[in-house]
């Protein structure tokens, strides 16, 4: 049967959902999760399985019949996040008293993870979900904080999965892109690697 394992480490949640149809829908309650959520799709045996040669590729012929007890993973896909790295880094909050047209980005490790709170006024807040430019502006601000948050050899940077993922991404682009502990680190460049800047022709502000 198809199976998808759902994990939210921050709330110590992990569970498996299964189905037999050709389409699987995985749901969770927002009140049970916080921070990053991971999904691992795969196939699990729902009963003891014995596969003979006719059902399998020739590469298995030396070890046939193939047997697996109930509950064994036959196939596991790659781990998928339910949010992009950029989405995981930013949290937009409504700031009633904020001056119109301004955003303020501040680090927020109150959750124990690398995250930035973006304080926006009520007018901008309405566009948070639809406007990529706003998201990218906030990302530039967030990336500007990284040298301050993660000094060289800071163990917190090694423990934080988002920081690790960000480091891996940027390291793969070296020497064109520098890490936050380098003099030539460029927050705008890093932000637009995470979320490339382009103008959508269907942007409602056009025309």
């Amino acid at each position: 049967m198809w199976a998808a394992e759902l994990r939210c480490p921050k709330t110590l949640m992990a569970r498996i959902e299964t189905c037999s149809s050709d389409r699987q829908q995985v749901t969770w309650n927002e009140r049970d999760v916080d921070g990053d959520i991971y999904v691992m799709p795969g196939v699990v045996t729902n009963e003891r399985l014995v596969l003979e040669g006719a059902e399998l590729s020739a590469i298995w012929k030396d070890i046939l019949p193939l047997q697996a007890p109930r509950g064994w993973w036959l196939v596991r896909g790659n781990v998928r996040r339910t949010k992009t790295l950029a989405e995981s880094l930013l949290k937009f909050v409504l700031e009633e008293n904020a001056e119109s047209g301004r955003i303020e980005v501040k680090p927020d490790r109150s959750s124990g993870r690398l995250r930035f709170t973006v304080h926006v006024d009520p007018d901008l807040f309405e566009h948070v979900k639809s406007d990529r430019t706003l998201k990218i502006a906030a990302l530039v601000g967030a990336c500007g904080w990284l040298p301050e948050i993660f000094r060289l050899d800071d163990p917190a940077a090694d423990e934080d999965p988002l920081a690790t993922q960000l480091r891996e991404l940027l390291t793969s682009r070296e020497p064109d892109v520098r890490l936050w502990d380098h003099d030539l680190y460029d927050p705008a460049l890093v932000a637009t690697i995470l979320e490339p800047l382009h103008f959508d022709s269907q942007d409602p502000r056009d025309g």
């Binding site: 909050v93 409504l94 927020d108 490790r109 109150s110 959750s111």
Partner: peptide, 15 residues
């Protein structure tokens, strides 16, 4: 919303 609004102040205060 109270938690979300206050998160960065909490972080700033602890740091």
């Amino acid at each position: 919303h109270l938690l979300e609004r206050t998160g960065s102040r909490f972080d700033e205060w602890q740091r």
